[in-house]
Write a protein that binds this DNA or RNA. Structure first.
Length: 311
DNA sequence: GTTGCCGCGGAGGTCCTTCA
DNA sequence: TGAAGGACCTCCGCGGCAAC
């Protein structure tokens, strides 16, 4: 028997006759005419090479073959029905799912704890995987489904991607508390002449950051580059280095007592943090639920409640 | 790759008859 | 009484093809 010859509706008819032990009753159950069900049964008989049901005084009695395939067919139909309805709706209370989120290390420290608490409260069988990829790999990860959501300032994600603003942040400078030349504020001359720590951010490239923060034609001297924000405090202590970071990153540093922050010497545009997803998951119920949770948690987020937990 | 058109085959419906 | 099946009709899905 070739699976291509099987019409799923024939299995539905078989299941209905198995339940009712009657062609007429099966027709009533399925909303079809009695001859229709009879025709369907006939096609099934030809496909299976078996009469499947024989008439007796008490109704249609299944043959041994019909009895042997009844349970697998019933389970298969249930599975198909469940699978189709699962894609259309998502019940967080009962759903088993794993979501992969792309976010920076600081996102994992600052944003993830609140998200985990919320997800565990609403969806006990849902797991989260937080990971960080090179900037150029974010798009492909979302496009192929290796990741469900990305959080950050990922301005390079445009065609085929959707975004939703979560909160705004601003850049600040951080230096060692005993910095030899920078006191309570930093001048533009001091900022440009200083030796900088560069963060290899998955969001904005260094060129984009320079364009945002510095007057045209000016550049910073970066003497050390690190891939994680959390590496910055150790590099700053006892040195004359300076790092430019979003203010919420500063709040996430556990040991801030040996550091001080100063405002930028120029008026820099706000850093807009969004959640990003690919159009493939635009209408997926599970993905919509996750985006709703993230939006609910971090829209106009101050971050204070999270920082309070960490200090 | 998508869309629209056309022809064909098959499934479903009704009506009716036959049979167990 | 209810299942099976024949005759006939309608409708719909699918494949092939062309155009974009």
């Amino acid at each position: 028997m070739n699976i291509r010859d099987i019409d799923l509706n024939l299995l539905v008819v078989f299941d209905a006759i198995m339940q009712t032990r009657s062609v007429t009753a099966a027709a009533g159950q399925l909303g079809r005419a009695q001859p229709t069900i009879s025709h369907s049964l006939n096609r099934l008989r030809l496909l299976c090479g078996d009469t499947l049901f024989v008439r007796t005084r008490t109704g249609l009695e299944p043959t041994p073959l019909a009895k042997s395939i009844a349970l697998p067919i019933s389970e298969a139909l249930t599975l198909v029905q469940k699978s189709l309805s699962m894609s259309a709706q998502f019940d967080p209370k009962t759903a088993h799912a794993t979501f992969t989120l792309l976010m920076s290390d600081i996102g994992q420290v600052g944003l993830l704890p609140a998200l985990v608490r919320r997800v565990r409260a609403e969806a006990p069988n849902v797991s989260l995987v937080a990971t960080q990829l090179p900037r150029e790999a974010y798009g492909e990860a979302l496009e192929t489904g290796r990741a469900d959501l990305a959080i950050g300032a990922l301005r390079h994600l445009t065609n085929g991607f959707y975004q939703q603003r979560l909160f705004d942040d601003e850049y600040v400078c951080v230096v060692s508390k005993d910095h030899p030349t920078i006191g309570d504020h930093v001048t533009l001359k001091q900022y440009i002449n200083a030796d900088h720590v560069g963060i290899i951010s998955p969001g904005l490239s260094e060129i984009e950051i320079e364009r945002l923060l510095l007057p045209p034609g000016r550049s910073r001297r970066i003497v050390v580059r690190v891939p994680h924000y959390l590496a910055a405090p150790a590099l700053l202590k006892g040195t004359d280095l300076i790092v430019t970071i979003p203010s919420k990153v500063l709040q996430s540093f556990r040991s801030r007592d040996q550091l001080k922050f100063v405002h930028l010497p120029i008026e820099a545009p706000k850093l807009r943090v969004h959640q990003y997803w690919h159009e493939r998951s635009l209408n997926e119920a599970a993905a919509k639920w996750l985006r709703g949770i993230v939006m609910d948690l971090f829209a106009d987020w101050s971050g204070d409640e999270l920082i309070a937990d960490m200090i």
